[in-house]
């Protein structure tokens, strides 16, 4: 787990996690968005991800965050 991700896992805003890890805030924002796109974390205000999910028909595209979801299998 990257240091930024580890800080976010402890409970932090992106800015706070960036400050604690010495990451540029703009880069930290990009990193958080990429982690979210990979399904590793949820961003504030992220849409209710499962309501329109078609993961069961696209198994190859299921992300890490879908690991606990029965529809992603």
């Amino acid at each position: 787990m990257s240091p930024l991700l580890a800080e976010l896992a402890k409970g932090a805003t992106v800015k706070a996690a960036a400050a604690r890890t010495g990451t540029d805030p703009a880069l930290a924002e990009v990193m958080a968005q990429e982690y979210a796109a990979l399904g590793l974390l949820q961003l504030p205000g992220q849409p209710q991800v499962c309501t329109t999910c078609h993961a069961n028909s696209k198994k190859g595209l299921a992300r890490l965050g879908c690991a606990g979801c029965p529809f992603a299998r």
Binding site: T13, V14, Q42, P44, G45, A67, G68, P70
Partner: peptide
């Protein structure tokens, strides 16, 4: 299902 919720809750705090 087995392995349910193995992922810790990772959410960016607003």
């Amino acid at each position: 299902g087995a392995g349910v919720n193995r992922q810790p809750l990772l959410m960016v705090l607003p």
